[in-house]
Simulated scan of single mutants.
Amino acid sequence: MILEYIAIIVALFFAMNIGASGTAASMGAPYGAGAIRSKRLALLLVAITAFLGAVLGGGEVVKTIGKGIIPMDLLDAKIVIIILVGATLTLFLANIIGIPLSTSEVTVGSIVGVGAAFQAIYSESLLYIVSFWVIIPIASFMITYVLGYLIKLAENRWSELTENGRWTKWLSVLLVFGGCLEAFSAGMNNVANSIGPIVGAGMISSSNGLLLGALFTSIGAILLGGKVLETNGKKITKLSLLQGSAVSFTGGTLVIIASVFGVPIPLTQVTTCGILGVGAVKDGFAIMQKDVIKRIGMVWLVSPLASLMVSYLLIHLFIDPNFYQVLVTISTLIVGIGTIGLSKIVKKETRVFVDKGAGI
């Protein structure tokens, strides 16, 4: 019983980090475009609409997270704690440095790590989910690129559609509504990542789990979402009101469609790719060279693998002790960290060499 309470506590802490990462990023476009100038108001709107999304439409994704990736009979209190710890640690570290990380990726990665340890993964379901991780963000980029091009033509022809035009007030309202739609979709899709494992283990009902998860997700958005909001809203590219609306409505619609079919989608990838789509029209494809884009891309790639390795390691440490598996996992982690450190040293030495030779 104590372990079950611990699992629920960890799940709710994870829900707070989901609020900080996934749902806070959904209001990045309105905040970046200036439709909402108050960060506190933006996070409050996120909290309210994400709560409604989770309670009203989060059930299908809960089913997928709870029993669609690994067999339900593997899920007990200890396993659930390991799944949630693996996902939460990865997400928490990302929130500390202000990177919009996909909660779906870290959650699925952690679940797959457990399944790999017991050699029990529904591979077809996993491939189905991962394929959506690729297709939906690409679709978001392509749609917003086309919309961005049309918006550019419209703004050049009708100046009243620009920031200081007579339609500014109504365009701001439209963009805020789009941000709320995206936050609603975030709650609908992402809250399941935190409470899906405890629902799958039978520790709490789906309805009660969604209610608690939604509440703590909203709290997390308000308390921890500021850095991610700044990253998505201000550090990628500045959006006009119409461009921001294109991002929000595209992202929100795609994620809601995925949620109806029970597919956990990386909302932050969908949103950021949408921002890149309109940004590529506005600033050219050189926007892809920005350091923040490279950093986000690396975290997207590493995050599911990191949570997978953490949960896999914890299984072989505490549930099914296996010295050889622990040795290989730790060695892999050391090699990965060491390679990154060595790469930084080499780049630093190269810069020093080039600088010293600059005057020759």
Score class of each variant (00 low, 15 high):
8 I>A: 10
8 I>T: 11
16 M>P: 01
17 N>P: 03
17 N>I: 15
24 A>G: 07
33 A>K: 09
35 A>D: 04
36 I>F: 00
38 S>Q: 05
45 L>W: 00
46 V>T: 15
50 A>Y: 10
51 F>P: 00
64 T>Y: 01
66 G>T: 06
67 K>Q: 10
68 G>N: 04
69 I>L: 12
71 P>A: 04
71 P>G: 00
74 L>S: 08
77 A>F: 03
79 I>K: 02
82 I>N: 09
82 I>E: 09
90 T>Q: 03
91 L>G: 06
96 I>Q: 10
99 I>N: 04
110 S>R: 01
115 G>S: 02
117 A>V: 02
119 Q>M: 08
124 E>Y: 02
142 M>V: 13
143 I>F: 05
145 Y>W: 12
146 V>Q: 07
160 E>R: 06
165 G>F: 02
165 G>M: 05
174 L>Q: 07
178 G>W: 10
182 E>I: 06
184 F>M: 11
191 V>F: 06
200 G>P: 02
206 S>D: 11
217 T>H: 06
217 T>N: 15
221 A>Y: 04
225 G>P: 05
232 N>F: 13
233 G>C: 11
239 L>N: 00
241 L>D: 04
242 L>H: 08
248 S>K: 01
258 A>D: 02
259 S>A: 09
261 F>L: 04
261 F>S: 03
265 I>V: 12
267 L>Q: 13
276 L>I: 07
279 G>K: 03
286 A>V: 14
292 V>F: 09
292 V>A: 10
307 S>G: 06
312 Y>K: 06
314 L>T: 13
318 F>K: 03
320 D>G: 09
321 P>S: 14
329 T>C: 14
342 L>D: 11
343 S>Q: 13
344 K>F: 12
